[in-house]
Simulated scan of single mutants.
Amino acid sequence: MQARKKGNAQGIDVSRYQGKIDWKAVKEDGISFAFIKASQGKSYRDKTFIGNAQAARAVGVLVGAYHYVDDSAITPEDARKEAANFVSAIDSAGGIAAFDLPPVMDYESNKSGLSKSALTSVAKAFLQEVERLTGVRPIVYTYPSFIGNFSGLSDYPLWIARYSSTQVPPGASGWSRWDFWQYSDGSAGGTLPSGTHKVAGIAGPVDLNEFDGTADELRTRFSKKPSVPKEEDATVKDGSFQINGENVGKALLFDGKTHVPLRVLADALGIPLRWDNAKKVAYLNNRKLQSVKLVEGTSYVQLRPIAESYGAEISWDAKNKIAGLKTKGDK
Rank of each mutant, 00 (worst) to 15 (best):
291 S>R: 15
227 S>G: 13
178 W>A: 11
73 A>I: 05
51 G>A: 10
115 S>L: 06
56 A>Q: 09
123 A>W: 03
220 T>V: 14
47 K>E: 11
304 R>G: 00
210 E>N: 14
217 E>Y: 01
283 Y>R: 09
240 S>R: 15
87 V>G: 03
93 A>S: 09
225 K>E: 09
205 P>Y: 06
4 R>G: 12
116 K>V: 00
261 P>K: 04
226 P>A: 10
264 V>A: 14
172 A>D: 10
293 K>A: 12
83 A>H: 07
317 D>P: 01
151 S>T: 14
70 D>S: 15
153 L>C: 03
323 A>H: 08
306 I>C: 03
308 E>F: 00
228 V>K: 15
263 R>I: 03
169 P>T: 04
313 E>C: 03
292 V>S: 06
143 Y>V: 09
81 K>T: 07
46 D>Y: 08
329 G>L: 12
269 L>P: 00
25 A>S: 14
40 Q>F: 07
99 F>V: 09
76 P>C: 10
181 W>M: 01
189 G>H: 07
250 K>V: 00
123 A>E: 10
286 N>A: 14
43 S>P: 00
98 A>F: 02
300 Y>T: 09
54 Q>R: 12
279 K>D: 10
224 K>W: 13
50 I>A: 10
186 G>T: 12
44 Y>P: 02
279 K>E: 13
293 K>Q: 14
133 L>W: 00
80 R>L: 03
207 D>N: 15
179 D>C: 00
197 H>S: 01
304 R>N: 11
48 T>W: 12
240 S>W: 09
111 K>H: 12
41 G>W: 08
251 A>G: 13
326 K>S: 11
192 L>F: 04
277 N>K: 14
183 Y>V: 11
111 K>A: 14
268 A>H: 08
259 H>L: 11
108 E>C: 07
218 L>Q: 02
69 V>L: 15
126 F>L: 02
229 P>I: 05
4 R>E: 04
82 E>S: 11
284 L>N: 05
143 Y>G: 05
